[in-house]
């Protein structure tokens, strides 16, 4: 089995603990061996790029440089972290002068990164390609029982790098969740922007972007939204109440990380997956598909 260097990123430490918990539980269950990068640092998200490109690049490359030399692949669940790692590796491969600059900066800390040494992959690709349909179908306990899920990819996992999927209408999460027994609803806005930090800049704009995503999920009959990015999860979940207030709507859509949904399918106890940490509670939706959920949770504890 391939071992993957694991870059958790800051969000998974703070705002997206549920993502961290569910990623670890799911990977352990599927035998996906994650080796955390020792002494990793913040990838700088999107902010540093505008401030000072070299610092932004070096900050990210430092993580690449710190990857155990025996490991050839790195995976990051957070969309922004994934994109940053992939972007810097690619830039260093394609622009030797930039690679030289970054490495000069890294050298100050005694580090060096050979462009292209590790392959940067999002966790969905690991599940889709490496674990694959057969093993996922086998591992499914049937506890999703046709849970209607809106697959929400957001921007950064599919843009600009999208080698094996369609960047406008991606299907990989759809397929993985379908294999696991979910009913994936038609969700045409699946790769549209959630607004990111727009909520800090212009609430009206942000609310409109969030409303569109919630509205489409609601219309397509979804019971939960599955997402791949801590920012997306935060926007759709934490701002749902205010969006309702702002527009006079009444959306009630739990927003989970896709790994949480995968975990439920694999029969992992809900609290191990961090279910219950979300603001719009998912418990009810999961209970609606009750029988199998309870059965799967036997021996463990259900979320109180």
């Amino acid at each position: 089995m391939v071992r993957y260097a694991f870059y958790p990123g800051c969000s998974l430490d703070v705002s997206a603990v549920a993502y961290d918990e569910s990623v670890k539980a799911v990977c352990a269950k599927l035998g996906v061996d994650l080796v955390p990068i020792a002494d990793w640092n913040c990838c700088g998200a999107t902010e540093y790029w505008g401030h000072d490109a070299l610092i932004a690049q070096a900050l990210i490359a430092r993580n690449l440089a710190r990857i155990d030399p025996e490991l050839e692949q790195v995976t990051a669940p957070c969309a922004a972290c994934y994109l940053n790692l992939a972007k810097v590796d690619r830039m260093m491969r394609e622009v030797p002068a930039a690679a030289e600059r970054v490495n000069r900066a890294l050298a100050a800390g005694g580090l060096h990164y050979e462009p292209g040494r590790v392959r940067v992959r999002h966790l969905i690709d690991v599940l889709y390609e490496d674990v694959g349909r057969e093993r996922l179908t086998e591992a499914s306990t049937g506890s999703l029982d046709g849970l209607r899920v809106a697959p929400y990819y957001g921007c950064q996992v599919v843009r600009p790098f999208c080698d094996n999927d369609d960047s406008e209408q991606p299907v990989r999460m759809d397929e993985v969740l379908t294999w696991l027994g979910a009913e994936v609803v038609e969700y045409p806005v699946k790769s549209q922007c959630c607004g990111g930090h727009m909520s800090q800049i212009s609430e009206n704009e942000a609310f409109e972007l969030i409303r569109r995503l919630l509205d489409c999920a609601h219309r397509s009959g979804a019971e939960v939204i599955a997402c791949m990015c801590p920012m997306c999860q935060l926007n759709l979940d934490a701002y749902q109440g205010r969006v309702n207030h702002h527009f006079g709507t009444g959306y009630h859509l739990p927003v989970l990380f896709f790994t949480q949904v995968v975990g439920v399918a694999l029969g992992i106890e809900h609290d191990v997956l961090g279910i219950g940490r979300e603001i719009v509670p998912a418990r009810e939706a999961l209970r609606a598909h009750g029988a199998t959920v309870v059965a799967a949770a036997e021996g463990g504890r259900d979320v109180p």
């Binding site: 406008e168 045409p188 806005v189 569109r212 509205d215 489409c216 219309r219």
Partner: peptide
């Protein structure tokens, strides 16, 4: 850019 049936 796209054709969509999701109204705004």
């Amino acid at each position: 850019a796209e054709v969509t049936d999701v109204p705004r």
